[in-house]
Design a protein around this nucleic acid. Structure first.
Length: 181
DNA sequence: AGGATGATATCC
DNA sequence: GATATCATCCTC
């Protein structure tokens, strides 16, 4: 499998989000196929953490593309994002669901469960995804699927941004976290 | 419909 | 230092 390059991530966030579908997420011996993502497109996106500006928490998002942004949510779960576009753009793609491929024995339908199943925690915040043991890779053979575009989940506070179609998933895939909406 | 549970930001 | 707010998930 071919590791995704810095150039892959350093492009428009919506394009990166869509192209991440079907790619492999690899952490040590665990492999999952990405089937659902959300795009957070910058400081003007009110649903994005980076809308609050540069803080200690969001500094990874303000950095260069191709790094992992991992944070704890609701005191229970971690969520994993991939920073996209150039330094200062503060945009990222949230991994919402994966399909288990190898060495994954827990549920993976939702961002919190993805991190639990993949053993992703805050120690991986800021990890360079172009390095070893925790990275993304292209599938061996390309696969045909239809991408659906829906509003993002859990961001009703974001005003008009809550309605934008920035959630993408593979139509018909059994591991997508929520089918309706 | 509501509870678990903690990091963060934003006040005083 | 207190509090309100979460890019969630599970049980009832």
């Amino acid at each position: 499998m071919k590791k995704l390059s810095r150039e892959f991530y350093d492009r428009d966030t919506v394009i990166v989000a869509k192209e991440l579908l079907g790619k492999y997420l690899i952490h040590e011996d665990r492999i999952g196929k990405i089937v659902e993502v959300e795009a957070y497109v910058g400081t003007h996106d009110l649903a994005s953490h980076s809308a609050k500006g540069l803080t200690k928490r969001t500094q990874i998002m303000f950095g260069s593309a191709g790094y992992a942004y991992v944070y704890m949510i609701y005191g229970l779960y971690y969520c994993m994002n991939i920073v996209t576009e150039g330094e200062g753009q503060a945009s990222a793609v949230l991994i919402r669901a994966i399909e288990p491929i190898k060495n994954i024995h827990d549920r993976t339908q939702g961002p919190g469960l993805v991190c639990k199943a993949m053993h992703i925690n805050k120690s991986l915040n800021g990890h360079d995804l172009c390095s070893d043991y925790f990275y993304l890779a292209d599938a061996q053979q390309s696969e045909e699927f239809i991408i659906l575009e829906k509003p993002r989940i859990g961001v009703p506070y974001a005003g008009e941004w809550a309605n934008k179609l920035l959630r993408f998933y593979i139509q018909g895939n059994a591991f997508v976290s929520r089918k309706e909406k």
